[in-house]
């Protein structure tokens, strides 16, 4: 009986010592590290990225971090509401391109960047007016292809090249659903 008690006391002491050390060993949640280089938005964008006015961003970036840094807007943003619910979808106009954001995921994030003319290009150098072959020389074979254009899929987003009369007529970055 004495032996058993002694063993139990020792075991309890070991546990207590372990508990005393817990202050040093316990893991505290650490703030997520953010890479900030130049004007890169705080959210670390994935997939194909777009750059304008020194800002590099992609779909999934928080709109608040990006929109104000892209320079002067060329028109009033257009906001449409979802039917019955409080969802909002806003298009921001920057002349040669448009940025669309909505709050479908809970946060107001960019879900689309739409390039409208050849004064802007993708980060990899593709622009409106290129032939499909020229685009494929940059990006390789597309994941999806149809008469209306072709798309590259990367890390949850799509880079779309729309075709008209045999040439790229529009480019968009889009969330891949």
């Amino acid at each position: 009986m004495k032996k058993t008690l002694l063993i139990l006391l020792l075991a309890a002491a070991v546990c207590l010592m372990a508990a005393c050390n817990s202050g040093e060993n316990e893991s505290k949640p650490e703030p997520a590290s953010t890479e900030v280089s130049g004007n890169t938005a705080e959210h670390t964008p994935t997939g194909y990225l777009f750059e304008s006015n020194g800002v590099t961003f992609g779909v999934g970036s928080a709109a608040a971090d990006v929109i104000d840094k892209l320079g002067a807007q060329t028109g009033e943003p257009y906001t449409s509401n979802s039917c019955a619910f409080n969802g909002k979808d806003t298009v921001y106009y920057f002349g040669s391109f448009e940025v669309s954001a909505n709050d479908e995921t809970g946060d107001f994030v960019i879900y689309s960047v739409y390039l409208k003319d050849d004064s802007v290009s993708t980060k990899e150098g593709a622009y409106i007016g290129m032939t499909p072959e020229e685009v494929k020389a940059i990006y390789g074979e597309p994941a999806e292809s149809s008469d209306g254009g072709f798309s590259y899929v990367k890390e949850g987003m799509k880079l779309n090249f729309f075709l008209k009369d045999g040439a790229v007529s529009a480019i968009s970055y889009y969330v891949n659903n």
């Binding site: 298009v91 209306g148 968009s172």
Partner: peptide, 14 residues
Amino acid sequence: LKTDPPVGHQLMDY
């Protein structure tokens, strides 16, 4: 409506 009516983006397939 404060701006011109928004124009839809080109689609792959109509």
